[in-house]
Write a protein that binds this DNA or RNA. Structure first.
Length: 557
RNA sequence: GACCCCAUCGUCUAGUCAGGUCUAGGACGUCAGGUUUUCAUCCUGAAAACAGGGGUUCGAAUCCCCUUGGGGUCGCCA
């Protein structure tokens, strides 16, 4: 049976590259009626945290990617080839280490990380490629035993056999790594934990993974994994390396991009100290701050990063699935768009759902070349998907979205108003966030409205004869007398336009829009008035008329 | 620097593996018109690509080589 796995390290949210890998692994398994498993690669004791693991489980679920084996979460997971956290498989690795060492295929090495670092730096200065010199192999066996006896810290290195290594990749074809390219890489760290290379090989084999689908940044690692598999007597799984996803500028879209953006901003601003937040307290603790600046290995957590970005006025790049969810994209659109980055059905069809993908996905239609992530196209797809929704679907999606990210809309609009608000915004929304950012005026108090003399405002209120203010003045009594429904308001305003504005509804609609919203953007004016309600609408129009003199003064100034 | 990967409109791509039907198709974006009470939507139309050079072949976007360009990796990270 075909088995695939997605094996993220729990360092944060799921980013789009990881999401696409997971999606392809999932689709491949589903298509073949195989199994898809999730495994947490938490062999880095410094960086792993429990919450982060759960974070991307939620992201996967939101995308509709379910897994058969792995951490149990929301009905997914379980399985009998676990545990699915590498940190809980230490005894399994220990067994495999012993086999390798006994067979003479791995050996202890005593250089410290700092010593190795220095040698690498030296090699770079000398402009030669660095490779571990196998010094530990020349050590006298008695010395080695004595050192181990006395507990001297050491790593275990794999003795890489000579000869070229051939990778048969399902996407790239045959890739040959020439003889002598690999050094004797470390398979067990000084703290006893396996390195990625070792854990991944052992786990993939023991978990029965038949197809390894991962990003192309792993292509070089595959050579290591192949020789390790041979040494351990494991079968080689099939490999498929996916091309990278790029930012619009052509660099690799990376989970570290947010961190990079912040570092750049800090460097540019010449910040020595962590800046203070609105409450006067530094947004990042001083010790965290200096540790962060010391090394690129340290990243700020999401909370700190967001706070820092906000006080510095830096826009963090959207790279996590969660970022797009927050920005109001639909999960099906993300799946669709992600799938299109490197895969296509082969005809002109571009828009499809997960069901289509699981029926048609195959590795032989995966592109070798990298793809840039195009926000504009994603946005266009999101618009199409939103428009394809029926009114009640859009309404409930918008409600759920507000509930998660902008509860103030649910607090200040009652159920009837909210439904009207959803309906009135449906066809003009590209994202679930759109109606909220253009519709803030619906939930703000009337007293906070200000009319600034921008060009469109001047045009609608001050220009012409009669001008918008005049028209507002004269329609006000009619509105006060009107029944407050969209139909009746339309009739009243239509008739007014016929009588006083050359039959052009726009001439009166736009002044009203500006009066009640403070700006030039709103849903259709009749809907807007109904959502706002009679009292608030009339109050705002009067308020606007009251500010006529001031506005005129500002214009002449 | 060493090794590896990649190369069709600005972007995602179809076509490449099985060379001719390709005066290279679609989508997003852009531009020009049109519809519309604002914004958005919607409609019509246009511009826009086989990176360059050598081969192979009757014939090359498609096969081979070189160049150029882009990217990845080179951690006791994964």
């Amino acid at each position: 049976m075909l088995r695939t796995r997605f094996a993220p390290s729990p360092t944060g949210h799921l980013h789009v590259g990881g999401a696409r890998t997971a999606l392809f692994c999932w689709a491949l398994a589903r298509r073949a009626e195989g199994r898809f498993l999730l495994r947490i690669e938490d062999t880095d004791r410094k960086r792993s945290s429990a919450e982060a693991g759960l974070g991307f489980c939620g992201d996967l679920e939101w995308l509709g990617i379910d897994w058969d084996e792995g951490p149990e979460h929301g009905g997914n997971g379980g399985g009998d080839t676990g545990p699915y956290w590498q940190s809980k498989r230490l005894d399994i690795y220990a067994e495999q280490f012993d086999r390798l060492i006994e067979a003479g295929l791995a050996y202890p090495a005593f250089e410290t990380a700092d010593e190795l670092q220095a040698k690498r730096a030296q090699a770079r200065a000398d402009k030669v490629a660095y490779k571990y010199d196998r010094a530990a192999l020349d050590l006298d066996p008695d010395t080695v035993s004595a050192w181990i006896e006395e507990g001297r810290p050491h790593v275990v290195r794999f003795k890489v056999p000579s000869g070229p290594i051939v990778i048969n990749d399902e996407v790239l074809g045959e890739v040959v790594v020439p003889d002598g390219e690999l050094e004797d890489f470390i398979i067990r760290k000084a703290d006893g934990y396996p390195t990625y290379h070792f854990a991944v090989v052992v786990d993939d084999s023991l978990m029965g993974v038949t197809h390894v689908v991962r990003g192309q940044e792993h292509l070089n690692n595959t050579a290591k994994h192949l020789v390790l598999q041979s040494a351990l007597g494991f079968e080689h799984p099939a490999y498929a390396h996916l091309s990278l996803i790029f930012n619009p500028d052509g660099s690799k879209m990376s989970k570290r991009d947010k961190d990079k953006a912040l570092r750049a901003a800090v460097r540019e601003g010449g910040l020595g100290e962590p800046p203070a937040g609105p409450d006067g307290v530094p947004v990042v603790e001083k010790s965290v701050w200096s540790r962060w600046l010391e090394s690129k290995d340290h990243q700020l957590d999401l909370h700190q990063a967001t706070a820092l970005a906000s006080v510095m006025g830096v826009e963090l790049p959207e790279i996590d699935v969660e970022d797009f969810r927050r920005a109001g994209y639909l999960p099906g659109v993300m799946v669709n768009y992600l799938a299109l980055l490197g895969w296509s059905p082969g005809d002109d069809r571009e828009q499809f759902d997960a069901e289509f993908l699981r029926r048609h996905f195959s590795l032989d239609r995966v592109l070798k070349s990298p793809a840039k992530f195009d926000r504009a196209k994603l946005l266009a797809f999101n618009l199409d998907a939103i428009q394809a929704l029926d009114a009640s679907e859009f309404h409930s999606l918008l409600r759920a979205y507000c509930d998660a990210y902008h509860p103030e809309f649910l607090e200040r609009l009652d159920d009837v108003q909210f439904e009207l608000f959803a309906n009135a915004n449906h066809e003009r929304s590209k994202t679930l966030l759109d109606p909220l950012s253009s519709g803030r005026f619906f939930i703000e108090p009337c007293s906070s409205l200000r009319w600034s003399p921008t060009k469109p405002v001047r045009k609608a209120l001050l220009n012409g004869e009669p001008c918008g203010f005049d028209l507002l003045e004269s329609i006000l009594p009619e509105l006060e007398a009107a029944e407050w429904t969209a139909d009746s308001l339309e009739a009243v305003i239509g008739a007014f336009a016929e009588a006083h504005a050359d039959g052009k509804v726009g001439k009166i609609a736009q002044p009203i829009r500006i009066a009640v919203s403070g700006g030039t953007i709103s849903p259709p004016i009749f809907d807007t008035l109904v959502i706002l309600g009679r009292d608030r609408s009339l109050k705002r129009i009067r308020h606007c008329l009251d500010s006529r003199a001031q506005l005129q003064a500002e214009v002449s100034a």
